[in-house]
Write a protein that binds this DNA or RNA. Sequence first.
DNA 1: TTAATTACTACTAAAATAGTAGTATTAGTG
DNA 2: CACTAATACTACTATTTTAGTAGTAATTAA
Lengths: 153, 153
Amino acid sequence: MKISAKARYGVRLMMVLARNYGSGPIFLKDIAKKEEISEKYLGQIVIPLRGAGLVLSSRGAHGGYMLAREPSEINLKQIVDILEGDCLVRCIKDPSACTRVRTCASRDIWMLLGGKISETLGSVSLAELNDMGRRKMATGRRRRIMKRENPER
Amino acid sequence: MKISAKARYGVRLMMVLARNYGSGPIFLKDIAKKEEISEKYLGQIVIPLRGAGLVLSSRGAHGGYMLAREPSEINLKQIVDILEGDCLVRCIKDPSACTRVRTCASRDIWMLLGGKISETLGSVSLAELNDMGRRKMATGRRRRIMKRENPER
DNA sequence: TTAATTACTACTAAAATAGTAGTATTAGTG
DNA sequence: CACTAATACTACTATTTTAGTAGTAATTAA
């Protein structure tokens, strides 16, 4: 049970776009370089995000990508749902996938779990996720400074 | 993001053992037939469960498998952790897997999600899961009877 | 017109998944 | 003791998924 590189890269891509929201389109090339992800692969990932209306693109010389709405208005469930094709178990989306569905008790736990996952991802916006990172880097910086100032502790 | 057949089958296997708790060991063959799972494959799945001390086995003519403790004392996180090899993202278990760990903000969301998943699976015991199924079958039966008695509705 | 970007399509190596198959070991029974 | 029926162990494999690479076409600002 792991989440794919596609979804992970997609989230990172969206976080970069969120951090640059409001300053025009930015190049995939730059995101790829900064995030150390293959530009070509990222190019495949951004297509469905654009298709779903989360991202706007412009082609040509001064093209690039930008978020279609504010970072606070895009949550992680939206991103992951687009990039992470299949759900936990097939019989949730498609009950006809298994003849045992009607009496299957184990299916209940996967539905419950799927709900929790959606709930968790849906509760965090790009804005909030970036804020979490900012706080982390700030405390990291402070700790490093303290260490330098007071090396005994 | 899906959970493997191995983990799904393992949970179903454990649910059967839970329903038969207290009445001696039961054969894998019977579980496999009832649950419509390959007996050989189930044989591979039960090994790590036994290794982790969740299941007891006895070999020979009247052998079989049984739970090592009460169904209320075994939860789904224990089962899934054993059968579902890798976690959401590798850098959670092994921070050295990625050089970006220290500043990576997206890692936070995967840790948060992983925690929620553990929490959810850890909160449901085999006993409770079987009870959920029992209730479902009871209402299913009642609905069917009502339907027969009052077909117009 | 040219250079730089996105858009699209096809292909592929490697890994994971979901098994199958066969043999060895163990233990109760006639 | 031999036989039978179960678990234990090991090796192999077809299929699918993953994580890309590669190349070309279309678009647009300068």
